[in-house]
Structures are given as C-alpha cells and as structure tokens.
Amino acid sequence: MLQQISASELVLMKIIWKNGGGALYSYIMEELEKEESSWKKNTVLTLLSRLVSKKYLKTKKIGRRNEYIALVKEQEYQAEQIHSFVDTVYEGNVKGLVSTLLQQDIISADELKEIERFWAGDNE
C-alpha cells in the first residue's frame, strides 16, 4: 500500500517519470523553472526528501550530485490512486464510477462501447 503524496510532490514525481524514472536534482530544477514555478531550492529538497521517506524515490550519488530514481512506476501510482478513489468515493462499486463518467460526458457512449469490445476481446 503506497502512502498518499501531496500535489506538489506529485509535480516532482511527474518530472522524474517523464525523464524515464530517474533525474538529477539540477534537471528537476530546470524543468520547474520552465513551468515558471517559484519553488526555492530547499523547498524542492525538502519535498524530494519527503518522497524518499515515503519510498517513492531513492537517491543515488553520482560524484557529489544526487540522482533521484523512482521506485514507483507511473502506472502503479495511477492504479493505486484509482483503487483508493473507487474505494473511498464509490465504496468499491466501479459501476457508479462509470455512470458518473457517462453522466458528466467525460466519456461518450461510443468510447464506452469500444472499451467494452476491448474488454471482451481481452478476456477470450
């Protein structure tokens, strides 16, 4: 069971995932500047060390620099999140989730059909 992470921590995880599951601290800072965030150096370090203690990341020393390597894949994280979401909001009832998606036009009937076909084909 993975621990929950905050929105700002997720931002950092996404940068690392995008870079193929590992990134140097300097790379992370560059990416953050591109996104025009005003995060200070030590703020980022604090968040990264929280991710390390939550077992989302591990550090590897390369010379004097730290490389942060993801211990959790993006898909794993998404799966975990959707499970906990369904559990907490729909009490484990996936139908409820799908009906909300349809009602809110987040997903169209055609798309749903396609998914059903895909699901049936997968189970043959």
């Binding site: 700002s8 005003s38 995060w39 150096k41 030590n42 703020t43 604090t46």
Partner: peptide, 14 residues
Amino acid sequence: QDIATLNLLAEFGE
C-alpha cells in the same frame, strides 16, 4: 504542504 511557507523557510536557509 504549503509551498509559500516552505519557500519562506528555504529563503532564510539560503
């Protein structure tokens, strides 16, 4: 979690 507060702390640290 508040980034502004963390930034304030980081700024003084620096």
